[in-house]
C-alpha cells in the first residue's frame, strides 16, 4: 500500500495509475520530494492541477492528505494549534468547586490553583489544527498548504520553522518534534511574490497549461467516452481561447468540465452553434464571452465552410 518509489519512472507510472497524468518535471519533482524530504512549492495559473497533484500523490503513496486552505488573515490558531478555551474554563470552574470543598482543611485554594494551572496547559486542552496534525500523525501524511499566496507575510514566516525542521514551538508546552516526516506541497497562484526565505526551503515546480497533446491525454483519461475527434477539437479550441487576451483564461479543469458537458449533450462535433451554447462552461466573464464568441466562433465557421 505505502509505496516507496525508487525512480522517476515509477512515480510517473504510479501517478498515472491513480488518474493523474504528470508532466516530466512534475514526476521528477514529486520523486525528489519523497527522497529529499523537502517541501515543494508549486506555482502556476489557476486550474492546472496543483491541488490535484497533492491529492494524487497522497493516493499513490497511500498516505492520508491533510489540507490547509489558506486565506487572508489565517493565523496560528487556525493553522497550528489552539487552546481549548471552553474546556479550560470548565476545568478551572471544576477546580474552583474542588477548592471550596477542600476549604475546610485550610489553605486549599493555592494547591488547587497550582494543579489547575499545570493542568490546563497540557496536551489534553490542545486542539490540533492541520499543521500540528500533519507532523504529529503516527503515519506519514501528505500535507497540502493550498494557496499560500493568499496569506499574510507573517504567516509565511511562521511556516519556516515547520518547513525546515518539522517542529513546532508552543510556548506553554515547549517544542513538539515531528513524529513522521510529511511530504509538504505548497501551492500558489503567483498573485504575490513569496518571500525568499520560504522559497529557499522549497523545491520549486512551475506548472503551466499542458501542451496540446498532453492536455488531450488528460481530457481523454477523464472522459474516455468522448470521441477522439471531438476531444482533439476541444483541446484545439481551448488553446485558441487561451491565446486571446481575456480576463480569465479557461483552465484545464474547465476543459474537462466542457468535455463532460459535450458528452452529456451528445455532441458529435464542435461547430459554431454547439460552441456558443456551451461557451459558458469555459468562459466565466461577461466581457470575455463576447470577445470569445466573436473571435473563435468565426474561426469555427471558417474551418467548417471549406470542409
Amino acid at each position: 500500500m505505502a509505496a516507496n518509489p525508487t525512480s522517476v519512472a515509477e512515480v510517473n507510472a504510479g501517478l498515472r495509475d491513480v488518474g493523474y497524468l504528470p508532466g516530466d518535471s512534475t514526476a521528477l519533482v514529486s520523486f525528489l520530494a519523497t527522497k529529499l524530504g523537502k517541501p515543494v512549492l508549486v506555482e502556476g495559473p489557476a486550474g492546472v492541477g496543483k491541488t490535484e497533484l497533492a491529492k494524487a500523490l497522497a493516493k499513490y503513496l497511500g498516505r492520508e492528505l491533510v489540507r490547509l486552505q489558506c486565506y487572508e488573515g489565517l493565523d496560528e490558531a487556525k493553522s497550528l494549534y489552539e487552546w481549548n478555551y471552553r474546556k479550560q474554563l470548565l476545568r478551572i470552574q471544576a477546580g474552583a468547586g474542588g477548592g471550596v470543598a477542600g476549604f475546610e482543611h485550610g489553605d486549599p485554594v493555592d494547591v488547587s490553583w497550582d494543579s489547575v494551572q499545570n493542568d490546563i496547559f497540557g496536551e489534553e486542552f490542545l486542539l490540533t489544527r492541520p499543521l500540528l496534525e500533519a507532523i504529529s500523525s503516527p503515519e506519514p501524511v501528505v500535507l497540502l498548504i493550498d494557496e499560500i499566496d493568499k496569506t499574510d507575510q507573517e504567516f509565511e514566516a511562521m511556516l519556516l520553522e515547520l518547513l525546515s525542521d518539522f517542529q513546532i514551538s508552543i510556548p506553554e508546552l515547549g517544542r513538539i518534534d515531528a513524529r513522521t516526516h510529511p511530504i509538504v506541497l505548497l501551492t500558489s497562484n503567483n498573485s504575490r511574490e513569496l518571500t525568499e526565505a520560504l522559497k529557499r526551503r522549497c523545491l520549486y515546480l512551475w506548472l503551466d497549461y499542458p501542451e496540446s497533446e498532453h492536455e488531450l491525454q488528460i481530457v481523454r483519461m477523464h472522459e474516455p467516452d468522448l470521441s477522439e475527434t471531438v476531444a482533439a477539437k476541444l483541446v484545439e479550441v481551448v488553446r485558441m481561447v487561451r491565446e486571446l487576451d481575456i480576463k480569465k483564461p479557461p483552465s484545464l479543469a474547465e476543459s474537462i468540465d466542457w468535455a463532460r458537458a459535450l458528452l452529456l449533450l451528445g455532441a458529435q462535433d464542435i461547430d459554431e452553434t454547439v460552441f456558443k451554447e456551451t461557451l459558458s462552461v469555459i468562459i466565466k466573464h461577461r466581457t470575455d464571452l463576447d470577445l470569445v464568441a466573436d473571435r473563435v466562433g468565426v474561426k469555427l465557421t471558417q474551418q467548417n465552410a471549406p470542409a
Partner: peptide, 18 residues
C-alpha cells in the same frame, strides 16, 4: 532532461529565474 530539471527545481525558484 532529468538532470536539468533536478537542478532547476532546487535552484530556480520563479518563472523569471527559470
Amino acid at each position: 532532461a532529468e538532470f536539468r530539471e533536478a537542478l532547476a527545481t532546487t535552484i530556480a525558484k520563479s518563472p523569471e529565474d527559470r
